[in-house]
Design a protein around this nucleic acid. Structure first.
Lengths: 213, 213, 213, 213
DNA sequence: TATGAATGAGACTTCATTCAT
DNA sequence: AATGAATGAAGTCTCATTCAT
């Protein structure tokens, strides 16, 4: 299959780009570095990608597509209520630190800046990832598990930001010591779901008996 | 005042760098762009900064020092318990979106990547900012206002990540419509303090009899 | 031959550098001048040489290697006693003025200063050239043709300095009028071998009775 | 005396230039380096010299004038025949290595290249120095002490080249060990006057008794 | 398809020189 | 006369991209 060989080279280039961009950063990395890491000639990269920017965007797109597809499948298989699946999503997000550290570093470090200045890239995959999260939150709100008064867009941004920052921390730390991302996920879920305040919410405290609907 | 002129020029360069870096990004910005924006010759920049990297780092250091100093003074003046002051800190953080949009954009976008690859810069000011946050959390824990079981480092990272991401969103959005950062801060505090779950924390539930469904 | 093309380009750059450095001097010459003279792009030079300094050193090294190899072969073919071969070496040295005027100008003018300040270059080829000369002198001393009391290192330096200066003069003069380097070599040999004094050496005077004045 | 102060500053600049140019080389030295070494402001140098080139040329001119004037006075005081004075001149030349090492380094290293490419400087002082030497040689020839058949210009170049090279060697060596320039001068005189060949000149050997005139 | 030598635009940075003080 | 901050022209070098093979 001639067709199988070419894609394989494309994949090698993307893998190499992930590694090189994660280690050196997009702007510090040279196209020649990616080519060497991929075991291809410099010019070969331009057979598969329009330019360096396109390589970055393609890498991000493809990795995010994989992540999102796997995430959706997992969430469907997981079942349960919105909170259960939200917890699952959070666990998956943080697990990147140990399962795909290069990808974790690439996404946490390069996403913001590179994406912002590379040809006004709209970053639809990132939006899609946020949408998955948002759908869960809004489902939780419809189910009565999550407070309806809270702006789901805002909550989603807050959760993603927290996950992203913690993932970055875990990733950088993981080079020195092993981490238990499950425990971290547990704490974060607890924080997001119940807050860090030790007492109950003022004014919403249930005084009398609570009867489930 | 001849003496006032030199410091003023340094300030002008830093202001110009903030603007240019925020708008174009550090790597896309040319030193000549900063010079033009500052109204000085290219070479003049090198009278005040060692090189382009040093300009970036100096800019970050000085702005963060100002932010931290003002924040500390404000927190002291605010008084109240840890939660009150934490709320105040969150408000201040988000208020950057309307009060110093360039600074907000610069910090949210450039901090992660640039800092990581620029001369292995340790970024002590960022650490210091996190420390202020952490001190508040731990004080809250000692006061019994914040649950002691939660790792303060982790909470701090989560809060900062959420704030950072939301600030970025606000900043980018603020170019199109005006925003009410106070309301956003209110919601985020509610999220961090009490969680988004509608019911009370399971297993810590108190007071009256609860009937399981 | 595709393979012949690359080496040819390196050679062209070195030739161009010789010409440009000889005419303008190393410090006055721009890399772009060398590139233009070689008929290549500026960047091409950096495919073959690390930087401008390396170009200078490489040029010197390679030309000196050629000179020394040819000289050694010639001296071996010449045969004869040390003085005969020393005379031959002197002739060869001065012949550069007419046979490779650019090389003569480059070596006489650039050698001292450039080499001294360019990356603390040790200049091993120059040392090697002096060694060839020194071997001849010491061989002459062993053969009894050259006075043993004289420090061979010092003699070698003196001869080289004289040759170098005379070569420079010849080279600069050759632009205006043709020169007979053979006659010059003859005179210099006479000077080095027998001195310029008209009488014999005092105190070593032989043979017949000498009447003091 | 206002007049005494300004010249004093000019002198300080020239002294500083000698030191800086000797240590770093003309092209590597910055005008600001000279200014700092002289204890004056950068701009002050341009009150006394037209530009960097002019500073170099002025330095060379003034030092050479001093050298030549002192040399002429010395030679006159020395008296004796041409060979005696020639020996004296050679001693003086080499003594620079210990008496004015910076000057020695400056002249031996910078003279050739810098002078050649700095605004087509004719270098009249160097010509004058050679003329002093040439006058001695030609006087020796008229006195019958030096063989008349030898081209005095050529001999002078050879002697100067030898002295220059040996002085350079002595100067560079003097940083590591002390040197006896007098012994070196003695050997060089012996070389120039009587040659290094152990036997007498062939064909000019005096067979019979030699009677002094 | 693949190569990688070659290109050349453009960036950072230096530093001789100027001029307002 | 002296200063030294400021200038800006110009040089070295990099590297994304091309194209002949």
């Amino acid at each position: 299959m001639a067709k199988a060989k070419a894609p394989e080279k494309r994949v090698r280039i993307l893998d190499a780009a992930l590694k090189v961009f994660a280690e050196q950063g997009f702007y510090n990395a040279r196209v020649a570095d990616v080519a060497r890491a991929a075991g291809v000639a410099d010019g070969t990269i331009y057979l598969y990608f329009q330019n360096k920017d396109d390589l970055l965007i393609s890498l991000f797109e493809e990795r995010m597509e994989e992540i999102i597809a796997a995430l959706r499948a997992d969430l469907e298989a997981t079942g349960g209520d919105a909170l259960v699946r939200l917890r699952r999503m959070i666990e998956r997000h943080l697990s990147m630190a140990v399962e795909s550290p290069l990808l974790a570093e690439f996404i946490t470090v390069e996403l913001r800046q590179s994406a912002k200045f590379v040809r006004e890239y709209e970053n639809p995959r990132f939006q899609e990832y946020l949408t998955v999260l948002r759908d869960l939150v809004e489902e939780g709100q419809r189910e009565g598990l999550i407070r309806s008064g809270m702006d789901s867009r805002l909550i989603v941004r807050a959760i993603f930001g927290a996950l992203d920052e913690v993932l970055l921390t875990l990733t950088l730390a993981s080079t020195t010591r092993s981490i238990d991302f499950r425990e971290v996920a547990e704490t974060l879920c607890d924080l997001f779901f119940h807050g860090m305040a030790s007492g109950p919410r003022p004014g919403t405290m249930p005084r009398g008996p609570v009867v489930a609907p």
